[in-house]
Design a binder for these strands. Structure first.
Length: 472
RNA sequence: GGUGGGGUGGCCGAGAGGCGAGGCACCGGCCUGCAAAGCCGGGCACGCGGGUUCAAAUCCCGUCCCCACCUCCA
């Protein structure tokens, strides 16, 4: 088995060969914690969670590093307008991101470094770049240090752009730049900026530029050469291009593969503050059960754009329900039989093949639903041997996708005293209904079913008894 | 202007030369006292115009349209 992935620098699918046999080092650009997370942020984190889970299922030891950018112009500016300290603001939003990830069943990364904790590592890279002639302190006394793009012949390699074709930023402040395309590695502290956001450096007090942090943190935790660098498609340029330039110009191998996840649109449009169409994580998670939200965000291929529109979550809910109903049905039927030990808890071959092929989750979901259908058909035929095999496959698949409805992270209101009380009452009503049915008193039997339905409880009759479930 | 990604049945969404992935919705049938759930079957999809081929949604040429990035952004 070989896992294949689309390398966005090579612009082609390649076999993934780890630098160290049996291990994967994966660095992912996390958010700038300046405001509340939206569904795009959730999607991005989810994509790498799925990669990580699949690598792990395939026996690789994954080191996943996802940074938190907790120092940046935006954070400083936004905090300056309020009484809140910039670091308090950053941390407050960091907690919101964590809450969103947790709610979606996204596993914590191996480590989640904050930019502010690696300033000296950043300075070391800046110093190397100056030494090698690829960076220069601005001559205007600002304390800024810029990367010299013209000095680096392969600048533009990641996004396949030529320096000459680039439209130079119209709103960029040229300050002490030699060339408008040069970017800041270090920003000198300006008047009025908080002292807490200022670090001593050989070039004067200041703070890091945006791109340098990822070069420093990936090196610190994964090494000068590591397997995969991931992030949102919108980060390819300039962020990742700049990271690549500064790390390689400083003499590091840097990432061997680049991976970019697609963005999330709303009704065909990019989410943006001016349009006011952003869907925030907290709102989105309130629109459906979190596991349904996860299914929705995971169901499209990780490289394609997801377009959220009304009804999308309902569709995801229906699709996931089908899987859940099978798991419940099969579990009840197989319990206590000798078939419960039949088969092994591994994914189906079709599923594995799809996942190996650049994490083709949509196709893998096709395989999942195939197992569900075959399992249901076997249960209809009372072929418990086949049913048990498909049940095990389904459990394994749902588990790698982080969509196991019985996993602890999705457990919520269906436990506790209230649920026990409800179960007792419903069971009593079902008993009454079944005696009515036995006596062919269908009027009463149907009235009980209607009463339960009005309370949001659905009844399913089967040869082995009646099962009830709460509409979610 | 430059660099990428797209246009697939009512909807979502894979596939990338040859049996119509899968899901949702809909229609028929089986099952059921009736339902629900499930199963079986159904609608003959690939932006458009050419071409290559025994065979094209998939390859080639042309053409139209959409989106993203080049400025902070997952």
């Amino acid at each position: 088995m070989t896992i294949r992935l689309y390398d966005s620098r090579a612009q082609s699918i390649t076999d993934f060969v780890p630098l160290v046999d049996g291990e994967v080092g994966l660095y992912v650009c996390g958010p700038t914690v300046q405001s509340s997370p939206h569904i795009g942020h959730l999607r991005s984190a989810l994509v790498y969670d799925l990669w990580r889970r699949w690598f792990t299922y395939r026996g690789l030891r994954v080191t996943l590093v996802r940074n938190v950018t907790d120092i940046d112009d935006k954070i400083l500016n936004l905090a300056a307008d309020t009484a809140e300290e910039w670091w308090a603001r950053a941390y407050r939003y960091e907690l919101e991101f964590t809450a969103g990830y947790t709610a979606l069943g996204i596993l914590p990364p191996t480590y989640e470094p904050r930019a502010t904790a690696s300033v000296s590592e950043m300075q070391a890279i800046v110093a190397t770049l100056i030494e090698r002639g690829h960076a220069y302190p601005a001559p205007d006394g600002s304390g800024d240090v810029y990367f010299d793009t013209v000095s680096w012949p392969t600048y533009g390699a990641l996004t396949n752009q030529k320096l000459d074709d680039m439209v130079s930023a119209t709103d960029a402040d040229p300050r002490g730049k030699r060339d408008p395309r040069d970017f800041a590695l270090w920003k000198g502290t300006k008047a009025g900026e908080p002292e807490s956001a200022s670090w001593e450096s050989p070039w004067g007090p200041g703070r890091p530029g945006w791109h340098i942090e990822c070069s420093a943190m990936s090196k610190r935790y994964l090494g000068a050469a590591f397997d995969i660098h991931g992030g949102g498609l919108d980060l390819r340029f300039p962020h990742h291009e700049n990271e690549l330039a500064q790390s390689t110009a400083a003499g590091d191998d840097f990432a061997h593969h680049w991976m970019h996840n697609g963005l999330v649109n709303v009704d065909g449009q990019k989410m943006s503050k001016s349009l006011g169409n952003s869907i925030f994580a907290s709102e989105f998670l309130a629109m459906a059960r979190p596991i349904v939200v996860r299914y929705f965000l995971a169901a499209a291929h990780y490289r394609s754009t997801i377009d959220y529109h009304d009804g999308a979550l309902e569709e995801a809910e229906a699709a996931l329900d089908r899987v859940e109903v099978f798991l419940g049905r099969a579990g009840r039927r197989l319990a206590g039989t000798r078939f419960v030990g039949v088969g092994s808890r591994v994914v189906s071959d079709a599923f594995a093949e799809a996942m190996d092929d650049d994490l083709n989750v949509p196709q893998a979901l096709g395989a999942l639903h195939d197992s569900v259908r075959r399992g249901n058909a076997a249960l209809d035929d009372d072929d418990l041997d086949t049913a048990a095999r498909e049940w095990q496959h389904t459990r394994a698949m749902v588990e790698v996708l982080g969509l196991d409805p019985y996993a602890p992270e999705w457990r919520g209101s269906d436990e506790g005293a209230a649920h026990t009380a409800l179960a007792t009452l419903v069971d009593k009503l079902l008993e009454a209904r079944n005696s009515a049915r036995a006596a062919k008193d269908f009027a009463n039997a149907d009235r009980i079913r209607a009463d339960l339905a009005a309370a949001g409880i659905t009844i399913e009759d089967s040869p082995s008894g009646s099962h009830w479930s709460l509409e979610q």
